[in-house]
Design a protein around this nucleic acid. Sequence first.
DNA 1: AACACCCCCTGTCGGC
DNA 2: TGCCGACAGGGGGTGT
Length: 289
Amino acid sequence: MPELPEVETVRRGLAPAMIGARIETVELRRGDIRFPFPPRFRERLTGKRITDVARRAKFLLVKLDSGETLIAHLGMSGSFRIEDERVGEFYTPRSKDPKHDHVVLRLDSGKTITFNDPRRFGFMDLAEDGGLDAHPRLAGLGLEPLSDSFDAARLAALLASSGAPLKSALLDQKRIAGLGNIYACEALWRAKLSPFRPAGRLARARGGPTKAATALAEAIRAVLKEAIDAGGSTLRDHRQADGALGYFQHSFDVYDREGKPCRRTGCRGTIARDMQSGRSTFYCRRCQK
DNA sequence: AACACCCCCTGTCGGC
DNA sequence: TGCCGACAGGGGGTGT
C-alpha cells in the first residue's frame, strides 16, 4: 500500500543498504515498467555511488555522486527487495514471483536491490544534475504534509480554490502530496469530516482557519506519523522474514471496513462505502459531518 | 482552469 | 470446481 507512510518506510529500509555503495551492474528485465526507461538508463546508473535516499510525496529519490537522481515510484504494487549475496540463501529466500522482478541493482557491498511490480504501475526515471525540482514528475507536487510548513492555515489555503468534495481534494497531489485513498479516508474519519463536504468551504472563516481545517490538518499529520511508526516497527520483522520492502498490514479505522461498526467511542454508526471519482470512500455517516 | 472519467496491468476474491 | 466480474494502495491523458 504505497502511500506516503509506506514509501517512507521503504526509504528507511533502503537507505542503510544503499547509501555509500556503488552500483556495479544494472539489470533491466524489460524495456519499460509503466513508462520506458529514460535514455541511457543503465549507463547513467552504472559505476555511480549512492549519496542519499530521500523521498518526495510518494516518490523515492536515490541521489548519485554524478549529481543525477534516480526517481522511483511504486505505483500500486511495487516493492523493493534487499538481498545480501554474502549472507546467502538461508537469510534471503527468493521472492514468490520473480517473474515480476523488473530491475536488479548489484552494489559493490555485495547487496542486491530488486524492484518487483506485478501490475507495472510503478516507474523509474532520472533527473539530471540540478534538475530535480523542475523534473516533470515532481514539478507540480504540492505541500509535504509532514513538513514544518504544513498547518491548518496552509491546508485551508490549499483547499480554498477547490470545488471538489473534500476527499477528492485530499487525493489531489498538486495540493497536498502523499495522501492516497487509505489515509485520506482515515484522516477524514479522525477529523469527523464528511468526505462529501465541499473542500473550498473549509477555508472560509474570519481571522484564520476553520475548526474543521484545524482538525483535518492535525488528523492528517497524526495518521501519517502513526502509520510510519507502525511501518518502521513492522519493517524489522518483515526483513527478517524475506527482505522485502513494500507492503505492511496496518489496522485501519474505516478503510475496507464496510458494514462494520464505527470504532469511535460512543458512536453507533456503521461504516459505509461509496464511490468518489472512481475510488472507494469508506466513512461513517453518523459521526462524519 | 479545474474537475470527472477511463485507462494502463496483474492478481485475488466472492458469487453463481 | 471453475468461470466471470468487480475491485485493488496511483496517476497520466483526455474531454468537458
